[in-house]
């Protein structure tokens, strides 16, 4: 039984007939829509290489069954640049050498976009490292990644509200 689903991927509506409900969002993007920027690393939700924005929130595409997300909006690494202009996070990763081999980089960049939009980390390196802990880098480019996220946050100032996470009524 074929199940048709429609996703808006990087702003473009895409309808796919799923022959099998086992297809993950990651496999649908890579195998059916030829969007191979999102990487299959562990395929078990541990490495973050498959990170996409699903309805605006960063998630592991490898653990999402595509059939469950009919109607969703998805942004992948391919959807970040605008009119040939790199997204500020992409530009910051280049400026700060936030990668070596590059395999984890699409996931790192999409995750960083999500982190900045979430507005919890600001430019605090400790909070950035914590907020990016779901993205592993086997080359160990973490120092550059942390700097890139802080720089991109500054470049995107106003993109998110004040940092959150307050626990007391009397807090700022």
């Amino acid at each position: 039984m074929s199940i048709p689903i429609t996703l808006t991927v990087n702003g473009i509506p895409r309808t796919v007939a799923l022959e099998d409900p086992r297809v993950t969002l990651l496999d649908l993007l890579r195998e059916r829509l030829d969007l191979t920027g999102s990487k299959k690393g562990c395929d078990r939700g541990q490495c973050g290489a498959c990170t996409v924005l699903l309805d605006g929130r960063r998630v592991n595409a490898c653990l999402a069954l595509a059939v469950s997300h009919d109607g969703a909006h998805v942004t992948t690494i391919e959807g970040l640049a605008r009119d040939g202009e790199l997204h500020p996070v992409q530009a910051a990763f280049i400026a700060h050498d936030g990668f070596q081999c590059g395999f984890c980089t699409p996931g790192q960049i999409v995750s960083a976009v999500g982190l900045i939009q979430e507005g919890q980390a600001g430019d605090d390196p400790e909070r950035i490292r914590e907020g990016m802990s779901g993205n592993l880098c086997r080359c160990g480019a973490y120092a550059g990644i942390t700097e890139a996220v802080a720089t991109a946050h500054a470049a995107m100032a106003g993109a998110s509200g004040l940092p959150g996470g307050y626990l007391r009524e009397d807090a700022a």
Binding site: G48, T51, V59, A64, S111, S133, G134, Y166, E169
Partner: peptide
């Protein structure tokens, strides 16, 4: 904000679990 201020240990425990991607889903 209201939940975290009323039950701060619950909020802290949630944020100590998994990764941001997993917590978002």
């Amino acid at each position: 904000p209201d939940f975290a201020r009323s039950y701060p240990a619950v909020a802290e425990a949630l944020l100590a679990g998994a990764s941001a991607q997993l917590r978002n889903a």
